[in-house]
Design a protein around this nucleic acid. Sequence first.
DNA 1: CAGCATCCGATCTGATACTG
DNA 2: CAGTATCAGATCGGATGCTG
Lengths: 118, 118
Amino acid sequence: MKMRDEYTCPLELTHDAIKGKWKPIILWQLSKAPQSLSGLRHSIAGISQKMLIQHLNELIQYGFVAKTTFEGYPLQVEYDLTDRGRKIFDAITIMQTVGIEMMIEDHKEELLRTKGLL
Amino acid sequence: MKMRDEYTCPLELTHDAIKGKWKPIILWQLSKAPQSLSGLRHSIAGISQKMLIQHLNELIQYGFVAKTTFEGYPLQVEYDLTDRGRKIFDAITIMQTVGIEMMIEDHKEELLRTKGLL
DNA sequence: CAGCATCCGATCTGATACTG
DNA sequence: CAGTATCAGATCGGATGCTG
């Protein structure tokens, strides 16, 4: 992702920090538990390794995620939310809630439509 | 923007709904007051008319924004947040808060660095 | 297991010009 | 004032193959 040098608008900064197809889901997964790369790859359906690493690195640059590397073989790392990451996670939670409501409402409409009630 | 037919993940749905360079700022502006197209264009620095209309339409499709058209000349419209829009705005608020904190912290570091304290 | 490099099609954005 | 159409460049995302 192209990263900007400077921001004048705080909202733009945060939006940049969580934009991209997979960042919200990565944060969501990490909020459940710190995980390894392969752990995340299994818990996030459909993500490629390239995208996972790229988005993780961006989250690290913005200070939402911390990475710990353990010595020895097999190689082992752990990704975890930082304090800042936990703060932005509150926003992710709201997004999740609203998303659920939207899906329920839309499904309701669909149901009524198929029954000829709309 | 490419719109998906179906969503399996609520978070993905909401993220799609607010993604794009300008959507968070548009929602932010509309939360202050319902506005006309030209009003928004003036309150959002740097946005092109095409992007503004495009993102507004996407926000309408996702049910975050409502549009009212008034008859007569000169043409007049008004964009406003819906209830759903106000819910997602809570997430935007958190994003704004975190963004401000990030900017302050980063600036703090910068200050210390220039003073040779870091 | 963790991570990088490259290539390519899909998508996003912005400038410009035009319509009701 | 509100909105559409088109086109070119930048960016993003996914598949694949390679390294420590």
